[in-house]
Design a protein around this nucleic acid. Structure first.
Length: 542
RNA sequence: GGGUCGCUAGCUCAAUGGUUAGAGCUGCGGACUUUUAAUCCGUAGGUUCCGGGUUCGAGCCCCGGGCGACCCA
């Protein structure tokens, strides 16, 4: 008891534990447990334990009684011989009421309990969702052990069971225990298994979501599969994965507001990156001709069902490729990811709807499709006054810092995107004044070689023929700086080191950015907060 | 940014401005050696998100704040 108590204090409280201070420690420990979820703060008196929810008090008491009876509630090691999945696969289809004489040691979380007088049942579940039944009979474990099981094991506890693999009289594959041990005592009750938790709790306490809901485990697994496949797909095409700075002295590579932080040691302002683009291009300048990065970007703006302040982004760059070649590669990456998850290029969402990602994807021109939608020719030369009239006609409020291209893009989003009907579509050839890092179109004035990929009505990826002319790039960034001076908080900064890299010569290159969270949304049909395991949530109390 | 709705026991939810805020599951005590959301008997569990206000009386009405969902921009 003493050893267990002091070691626990070290974990929970740091170094304040003293040998023999178990009574005090127990009270302080309650405070340590209670604070994170804002339960009543336990102060000095041991009696204030009564302020905790009843069920938690009872479980804390069981934890203590386990220790008192020589059962460590949190043992360091257990003689496990099989995973639950291994037992299931080793004994796939036993007849009802079979004895195998195979002795195994297994562990899992208790998800279901049925305690009767002399024979107890429990369903144990492993983290992968596989389950097996444990049975404890008076005849096999004896009166004391059975009584302790009934008194001290709750739903949600991790337990170890050692015994024979059998099937019950109902045919359930089971381990008939010779002995049992607590693997980890749970101090809080699980949610009701048969009612869905509300969305807020599911996201704030994702660990409970993962325990209770197979779909949550499935989502986590799908993300793992997709990210892994994207890496394989790129590596098989000769790309190398590199890591570029998250903390930057100057943010760039996108138009967005950054998070700002400070370095104490350098006594200077730093930015969390809004995109890795400018560093990946530096790598291309250095001769890394096919590079990619999958990592987090941070943008200091609101959250909704398609936006998160931090989100995972894939960017990849290929020397001597242009934006059309990059579009093909992007389509293949997404199709290969879909195949890895579904074994098909057709994604099947949880609600059963299917999204066909197969075959070639159409390419439509931004200006052409917009012209068709509004019934008049729109070009980069269309006067600003006319663009504003068209915007006002559909109640788009034109911001004071908007350049013409921005108005065109807003008109496009308003008029055209729905016409794609969710089908993957590359929208090509964007306005030059909203794309400062993109090469001028090889044949069309006022446009750049850029595409956006729309799937299911939202932007899934973007690709460029990269601007590599350092003189033009400098002009573009100076224009951005001027926008910034006029109050556009999202305008790009003049990054002299990036320009210096370009001045050393960057080969003609294609580049792509793919939102990983959005790719998961595309494949699963879920909102962005479901594709991210632990999305940012505001604290429950101010 | 605007609007609508919501926040009550560990969880999921009830409750015309009017008795002591209820139910199911969970928990606790008891019965049961084949249970699958077991069944049966008994029982406990509450800062009604927070702070003001109106009222003889507020979970409910009013004001402010917090958190969330949905819709609109």
């Amino acid at each position: 008891m003493r050893v267990e108590c002091t070691s626990k204090m070290t974990v929970v409280m740091g170094a304040t534990g003293l040998n023999g201070a178990c009574a005090a420690a127990s009270t302080s420990m309650l405070a340590a447990y209670a604070l994170p979820l804002a339960l009543p703060v336990v102060t000095t008196d041991h009696d204030e334990e009564l302020d905790l929810p009843e069920q938690m008090r009872i479980r804390l008491d069981k934890r203590k009684r386990l220790a008192d009876q020589g059962r460590d509630p949190y043992p360091v090691a257990l003689p496990i011989t099989h995973t639950i999945a291994a037992v299931r696969s080793e004994f796939p289809e036993l007849e009802i009421d079979t004895q195998t004489s195979a002795i195994v040691g297994i562990a899992g979380r208790v998800m279901f309990v049925r305690n009767t007088g002399k024979l107890c049942f429990a369903t144990l579940r492993a983290g992968d969702g596989t389950e097996i039944q444990a049975m404890l009979s008076l005849a096999n474990v004896g009166q004391d052990s059975l009584d302790q099981w009934k008194a001290l094991v709750d739903l949600g506890d991790h337990v170890f069971v050692e015994g024979e693999v059998i099937t019950s009289k109902r045919g359930e594959l089971s381990v008939l225990a010779n002995s049992w041990a607590m693997a980890a005592k749970s101090l809080r009750p699980l949610p009701v298994a048969h009612k869905p938790m509300n969305d807020d709790s599911r996201i704030r306490q994702r660990y409970l979501d993962l325990i209770m809901r197979p779909e949550a485990r499935q989502m986590a697994q799908t993300r793992i599969t997709v990210v892994s496949q994207v890496r394989k797909s790129l590596e098989s095409r000769g790309y190398f994965e590199i890591e570029t700075p998250m903390l930057q002295t100057m943010h760039g590579g996108a138009t967005a507001r950054p998070f700002i932080t400070t370095s104490n040691a350098f006594d200077m302002q730093l930015f969390l990156r809004i995109a890795p683009e400018l560093f990946l291009k530096r790598a291309v300048v250095g001769g890394m001709e096919r590079v990619f990065e999958i990592n987090r970007n941070f943008r200091n703006e609101g959250a909704d069902s398609t936006h998160s302040p931090e989100f995972a982004m894939l960017e990849f760059y290929q020397a001597y490729a242009d934006y059309i070649q990059m579009a093909h590669t992007t389509r293949e990456l997404i199709q290969e990811a879909a195949f890895a998850v579904f074994g098909s290029h057709v994604a099947t969402h949880i609600d059963g709807t299917q999204l066909d990602l197969s075959g070639e994807w159409p390419m439509v021109s931004l200006y052409g499709s917009l012209s068709e939608a509004v019934g008049e020719q729109i070009t980069p030369q269309t006067p600003r006054e006319r663009l504003i009239e068209l915007a006002n006609a559909v109640e788009i409020e034109v911001g004071s810092t908007w350049v013409n291209g921005k108005i065109v893009e807003e008109l496009f989003e308003h008029h055209v995107i729905e016409r794609f009907g969710g089908r993957p579509t590359f929208v090509i050839d964007f306005p030059v004044d909203t794309s400062p890092l993109t090469r001028d179109h090889r044949s069309q004035d006022g446009k750049v070689e850029k595409w956006d990929l729309y799937i299911n009505g939202y932007e899934q990826a973007t690709g460029y023929s990269e601007l590599v002319d350092p003189v033009v790039q400098r002009e573009r960034l100076i224009e951005q700086a001027a926008l910034g001076a006029r109050g556009d908080v999202e305008a790009m900064k003049l990054d002299e080191d990036f320009l210096r890299a370009l001045e050393h010569g960057m080969p003609p290159s294609g580049g792509v950015g793919v939102g990983i969270d959005r790719l998961l949304m595309t494949l699963t049909g879920l909102g962005i907060r479901e594709t991210i395991l632990f999305p940012l949530v505001k604290p429950e109390q101010a």
